[in-house]
Structure formats: structure tokens, C-alpha cells
Design a binder for these strands. Structure first.
Lengths: 210, 210
DNA sequence: AGCAAAGTTAAACAAACGTTTAATTTAAAC
DNA sequence: GTTTAAATTAAACGTTTGTTTAACTTTGCT
């Protein structure tokens, strides 16, 4: 991976925001150049093409995501459920902290044509699943978790719920219930609510009888 | 609402599929015209513009969705949890039966710019919530459901899980576990799995103590 | 048959697109 | 100070975009 200068990074950030707001095809390189305050030609000069620019964004965020995943399970002294609670919280923080990127992921995973970006997304999801599965299996064998658990569906609900909350934010923001809160506390509020909800959800499915 | 001829409908269907697969901006009117086997000018002639075409798709599906919602709660003899179970199953069937449209919804709700389409989507979600809320509240007062329930989050998980499963299908399809199944039974299999998972999830959160 | 409206077509439209060019400026190295 | 490479620019490139035009065909009605 090549070095990324400060100027390249600012282009990446602007492009990420615009791709998230208007979609890849809905954003022109001229839009990006203008908002990033650089000449149009610089985008091809630095990244090769508009497609490569998107790839660069994904690779940039993905590199951090994979490090995130690796660091997710260092503490082996925790009880299985606490491990998962910790994962959920760190997950919420991660995804809510890079909402623009998550928007791009949401959009890109819908594309039918096979793209390098889509493949990277699913590689990441598989890694997450590979991390969660052994925790569940171990706890099942220890008799702590319920026998009959669909881990794939559980992870789908985790991803899906957070991915749904991101666009819903703009709408909830208009509710009188939150209108007097400032942006930061509103966001923190929502993260708290997400955390409580998802932990309940996981605990119920993992440990309760039905 | 105007009448829709068979030719117009075939354009709508083709456009729906292409918008779902490649996104709105990723699909050209020439693509649509070619696949629908009509002249390019017919799209403007019938629908006015590309934007209006998308609106027509959304309005067409939305009309059915609102009728769907109205018919959702006729049987008042059921117990609250059974009502919700019935809702979940009908929901899964509805959404998995119009996956292309759901893809469009997923994409469109991410747009930052205020669009008539995005507003329609949220109107629909609010209606769903308005339908679920009284069932929960009534059952809470009757002591059947737990006191502390975040209905918004619960609905978010419902929508989110299904919306996540739709793009995941293409990936799961490649798993050796399902490779020998034909398309229809695979889909039915997945719907079954979704149903079991979501019912567990709802039952746990609605009725269990924590 | 004759006429008006609706349907259909190929061609053309200007605008916007992503990308490239060639010239110029800046920076670094010797 | 000269040289060499990198950075930056305005302009132009050829496509593709959504939409419109104007001519033509079909349809339905009296």
C-alpha cells in the first residue's frame, strides 16, 4: 500500500461523504474536486480513476476494520456473554463513528455486478462471523448458551439494526422528543439505546429457553 | 392515479429490476428501454422523466403496501403475541416477494437530499410503527408483555434484519450447504429461517424478564 | 372513408460525464 | 544555479447522459 499524503486524504474524506450522501454514480468527480478544493485532474492523477477512488476509500477503512477485528478478542478472562456485550458496544461505536462509510457499504453490497468492493465487504462479514462462532460454540458446550442458535441470523440482526438506524437518525432528529438535544448528545443517546436493545436481544437468544 | 397499461407496467418492472441491481443513477433510460424493448422516447412520453419513473415505481408498490398494512390487523380474537407472529410472517412474505423494490427502498432511504421517494418510505415506516405500538401497549397494560420495551428499536431490527438478508442471499447461495437446492426451495428455506429467528427475537424481548 | 387523438419512431439536442493532454509551477537534488 | 521529477493547472477530449423534436403509424370514433 502506497503512502497517502494529507491532500489525498482530504480528497478521500470528501469523496466518502459525497458517495454516502448521493451514491457513487450520483456524485461527479467535479463535485468532489470542488468540495475538496483541488483541480479535477488531481483525482485521476492520484487515484487513477473514479472507480479506483472508491476502492481506495474502502481499502482505507477496511484496513482499520481488520485491525479492529483482530483487537476485538484479546481478553480471554471474560465470561462468554460479557465478551459478546463488549463486542456489541465496540461495534456500535465503530459503525456509528464512520456512518458515511457504512452508508457506502450499505449501498455497495446491493450491487448485482461483481465488484472488488462488494467482495471486500463480504470478506469482512465472514471474518466477523468467524470470530463470533467459536465463542458461541464454546459456551454452548459449556452449557452456558442455548443449544439451538442461528449465529448467521443473529449477526444479520446486529448488522441490520445498526445499518437501519443510520438513515433513521435524520428522521428521528425531527421528533419533538429529541429536538432540544444537540447533535452530540443525541447521537450518544441513540448509541445508548442501541446498546441496551442489542444486548437484550443477544442475551435473550443466546441464554433463554423457548 | 392514472390507469397503467400493460406496456407501462412492463417498463415499470424492468426499471425496478435495473434500479435495484445497479442503482438509480447507475441505470440509464437507454438500458431500461432496451431491456423493456421499447423506444427511448416512450419513457418520457409515459412517465415524464426518469425521476418520475422512479416515483411511479414507488407509488405503485406503495399503494399495495398500504393496502397490505390495512389488512394486517383484522383478526382481533388472537392473542397479542400471535398477532405479532402473524405480522412477522406476512411481513417476511411481503418483503421477500418484492426484493427488487426493497433494494430500491434500501438505497433511496440513504439519500441525504430531500426527495418525495424518501418521504414516502418514512411515511410507510411510521404507519407500521403506529400499527405495532397499540398492540404492545395494550398487552403491556394487560400484563402480558414486559413493561420496558423499545418498540422503535424492535421495528428497526425487524426491517434491518430482512433488509440485510436480501443482499446476503447472493452470497449464501454459494455456500456448499445450499448449493444443491434449487432457487425456490432455497428461498423458502431462508424465509423459514428468518421466521423462526424473528419470532424468537420478538418473543424474547416482549415477554421475558431481564 | 375521413378525421383526430394516441402511440411510436429515428434523429438530434444540449448538458454533464470521466478522463487526458500539454503547458506551467513548485520542489528537491546535485 | 541548473537540472529533474513531481505537482498543479486550464482546456479539450470523446462519450454518454436525459430529454425533445418532428415525422410517421396506428387506433378509435362518427
Amino acid at each position: 500500500m502506497e503512502e497517502i499524503s494529507e491532500k489525498q486524504l482530504s480528497i478521500l474524506k470528501v469523496a466518502e461523504r459525497l458517495f454516502a450522501d448521493q451514491g457513487f454514480h450520483g456524485t461527479s468527480v467535479r463535485d468532489i474536486a470542488q468540495e475538496a478544493d483541488v483541480n479535477i485532474a488531481m483525482i485521476s492523477y492520484y487515484f487513477g480513476s473514479k472507480d479506483k477512488l472508491l476502492e481506495s476509500i474502502v481499502k482505507y477503512r477496511m484496513k482499520a476494520s481488520q485491525k479492529f477485528i483482530q483487537d476485538l478478542l484479546v481478553d480471554d478472562t471474560m465470561k462468554p456473554l460479557d465478551k459478546i456485550y463488549a463486542m456489541i458496544d465496540r461495534f456500535i461505536n465503530k459503525m456509528m463513528g464512520e456512518q458515511n462509510f457504512q452508508c457506502i457499504m450499505s449501498r455497495e453490497q446491493l450491487n448485482s455486478e461483481k465488484s472488488p468492493v462488494r467482495d471486500l465487504i463480504w470478506e469482512l462479514k465472514r471474518e466477523m462471523l468467524g470470530l463470533m462462532q467459536p465463542i458461541v460454540t464454546d459456551a454452548q458446550e459449556a452449557g452456558i448458551f442455548h443449544k439451538d442458535i442461528d449465529v448467521v441470523m443473529l449477526m444479520t440482526s446486529l448488522f441490520g439494526t445498526i445499518h437501519q438506524i443510520i438513515p433513521a437518525q435524520k428522521l428521528l432528529r425531527n421528533d419533538p422528543e429529541f429536538s432540544d438535544l444537540d447533535e452530540a448528545t443525541f447521537k450518544e443517546n441513540l448509541k445508548q439505546r442501541l446498546s441496551i436493545h442489542l444486548k437484550k436481544l443477544f442475551k435473550a437468544i443466546l441464554t433463554h429457553e423457548f
